[in-house]
Design a protein around this nucleic acid. Structure first.
Lengths: 343, 343
DNA sequence: AATTATCCAGAAAACGATTACAATTACATT
DNA sequence: AATGTAATTGTAATCGTTTTCTGGATAATT
């Protein structure tokens, strides 16, 4: 008994003919089976089975207007594990609901981002989950006017009110810094990010909050900002290490900054945590396998993805609902790079 | 002079009316502008501009049958950087051509993979670039019968003939092993993968090729196979390290195996490369920032993505063309984890 | 028993594009 | 001047669904 795989795609017409009903009935079986007599339901369903019927999304979307079935996922760098971790969370929520995900990767380029946005709108995505490349509102005018439901994560462009999910960045960074203080470190460096991003500003503020609260003087605080990416952070870390006394306790602003910093440390043959202690923002698959294992701030990215998907679904279902922000607390995972109280 | 953003989406009808032409002409301006008089082209184009017209992909796809505009990208684990690196390469090729990418992540689960495949087929993707979760043909019958153009990368399920792009795995692993031999190492371990995958078998074969060619006896060769993933590889590495004399030269079968192995090494406080030398399969963003920097085999994933996209485009354009395999040579990036000739 | 309400299924009109075909025009050829 | 040809443009059918509207059958109410 071999299963039958039709060569060409069967249409609703053919299913209707095979079941001896009208296409309207087939459609009803698909969309609201309760409104069709049980007898016909089975007849139609077996017809669908044997013909290997698969409804055309294009036709559905075209006819019904709404396309509850396609969602865009836009990020600045698809190679960054934070974003793919979020994507996984989004996927979990959406695939179960038969919603396809269209990905767009701007690769940190506003131009590509614009192309991707256009593409998504043409695709008639019913919503977009985005980590925008820029903080400037002007780049998103067209998107905003398209009326598409949007959920941001990581950061929201200046002056826009949108649903979003974020980490409590200030508290997270403060906690990480406090951890370093409690370990007895006395001078502190931050490999930061571009201050045009609220995310970078908040994390920096958290860093300073903790330091000032502990009465650490400004002469023991160094900050160099990179560009969220490996190379820029590598340069920033090098600037920092060149003018900084050791021992030093270092924090990084995100996962790529961590890699750049590690590279700089590695090249300068500085020992972690003896000469330079480190707490990294963002958990990474290999953080526990690093030598030494890295103490990190975990933003729970896949959970953020879940939350973003839920927000989007809610917004799509009820466009008029109030704008909502979901703020998640991060978790400090203490490993060895931050140094130890007892050596 | 503010740009006009229409609230509701304009249709081709409206554009036609605004430009004082028929919808056929508007369509032609879109699809083969040369067949329309220049004068009308500009009239139509300005009408599209002012109305903010954006063609409906659903309608296009429905009417034209072909949907040259949507491609599926299916992987077993979207969190694995090798796959996202490939995705980036695919993206580069496709977005420029206005083709959207629908991602599917099976998360190493055949069931989820099947759901994703169904979803993609419903989406009427015009082709699929896939890194299949299983090697067993039976899981892909429905997909195959759908007639959708498919390009595999990483591996091809048993007994299927499909376009694909792969690394010359055997040669790559042999080269890596030879590197270790030349460095003077004398016993060798492999943290391998499931041998049901041709990819794992080939890499293992390359490992043995080089060893046998150098006259290394079987008593100096250890192999433990994991599951391509971190945890399984961690366990395999632990088995290996438990029954292996040091010094040892180790190879890993992929990036996740590397992380698992590193974790095991780290826990056992084994020094790299003094006690255990290491060559890792797959370049990773942080490989050069590890302590010590990791010698790796680089598969050029984003280039593989480019190639896969090109293959798919070619197949979509000409379904009858002969099946083609693209085999890429990998590159050994020598850093410090493999040990040094001169200490 | 007559009337009304309820339910179910079909007919047919959309949705927004593409495209075969027909019609018009302009131009070249004789 | 008449005819043929090529280049443009328009008309209308069509893609595969959903959905409104309508009719007929059955059940419920009086």
């Amino acid at each position: 008994m071999t299963k039958h795989y039709p060569t060409a795609r069967a249409t609703m017409q053919e299913v209707a003919a095979a079941a001896g009903v009208s296409t309207a009935t087939v459609s009803r079986v698909l969309n609201s089976p309760t409104s069709v007599s049980p007898e016909l339901v089975v007849r139609v369903e077996t017809a669908m089975q044997t013909l290997g019927y698969r409804p055309s999304r294009s036709a559905r979307t075209l006819r019904s207007g709404r396309s509850l079935q396609r969602v865009g996922f836009l990020v600045s760098n698809i190679q960054n594990s934070f974003f793919t971790d979020v994507l996984k969370g989004v996927e979990q929520q959406l695939v179960a609901r038969q919603i396809a995900i269209v990905v767009g990767n701007s690769n940190n380029d506003i131009g590509y981002e614009a192309i991707n946005i256009e593409l998504m709108l043409e695709e008639q995505v019913s919503g977009i989950i985005a980590q925008f490349t820029s903080t400037q509102r002007k780049f998103y005018q067209a998107l905003l006017h398209s009326q598409a439901p949007i959920v941001c994560f990581d950061h929201v462009p200046e002056g826009l009110s949108l649903d979003c999910v974020m980490t409590n960045n200030r508290a997270a960074m403060a906690q990480a810094t406090r951890h370093l203080i409690e370990l007895g470190h006395r001078s502190f460096g931050l490999v930061g990010g571009p201050l045009s991003y609220i995310t970078a500003r908040e994390r920096q503020a958290g860093f300073l909050d903790a330091l000032h609260a502990a009465g650490i003087g400004d002469d023991a605080i160094w900050i160099e900002n990179g560009d969220w990416q490996i190379d820029g952070s590598y340069a920033a870390a090098n600037r920092l290490l060149a003018r900084t006394p050791q021992p030093l306790a270092l924090l990084t602003i995100n996962n790529e900054a961590t890699i750049g910093t590690l590279k700089a440390l590695q090249e300068r043959k500085l020992r972690i945590p003896e000469e330079v202690a480190l707490v990294a923002f963002d958990e990474m698959a290999w953080a526990g396998a690093y030598n030494p294992p890295l103490t990190v701030v975990n933003q729970h990215p896949s959970y953020q993805g879940n939350a973003a998907a839920e927000l989007l679904l809610a917004r799509m279902a009820e466009p008029g609902r109030p704008i909502q922000q979901v703020v998640l607390e991060a978790e400090l995972i203490v490993r060895q790079s931050s140094g130890m109280l007892v050596q």
